[in-house]
């Protein structure tokens, strides 16, 4: 069971700016043969109270900082789940096709 943390919901007026997934297309030409680009997404937004998709550590950390300990690193909006991406690559023996893990952000949370 998680510690108590109110979640952002339809009635939360700050819902537009809270930590969440945003599309991001990047070039892959320097690291793989193909594809040339991919949408890997990125996480953006506030991790102030109420913390979206926080875990117990982030709730405790946020509460500790809220008590005046402003020198601590505050919770940060980061990917917490990923998808793999199938790519064509180049190895000693020539062309290969492989699955690269954790390439595409799928879900964001405060950590």
């Amino acid at each position: 069971r998680g510690l108590r943390a109110t979640r952002a919901g339809p009635n939360n007026p700050e819902g537009g700016n809270i930590c969440g997934l945003r599309s991001l297309t990047v070039s892959l030409t320097k690291i793989v043969t193909g594809p040339n680009t991919a949408n890997i997404n990125n996480c953006h937004g506030s991790c102030a109270f109420p913390l979206p998709s926080a875990n117990n550590h982030a709730v405790l950390l946020n509460s500790h900082i809220g008590s005046g300990n402003v020198d601590e690193r505050a919770p940060c909006c980061v990917p917490v789940a990923y998808e793999d991406l199938e790519v064509v690559d180049f190895a000693d023996y020539g062309t290969s096709i492989t699955i690269k893990p954790n390439m595409v952000a799928k879900e964001c949370g405060c950590r």
Binding site: T33, G34, P35, N36, E86, V87, V88, G94, T95, I97
Partner: peptide
């Protein structure tokens, strides 16, 4: 997809696309 060996391309793959 081709390897380039001694300046000449050598076919590795000709096919329908998967990743591009």
């Amino acid at each position: 997809y081709y390897r380039v060996i001694d300046g000449q391309p050598k076919v590795d793959v000709l096919a329908c696309d998967i990743v591009e």
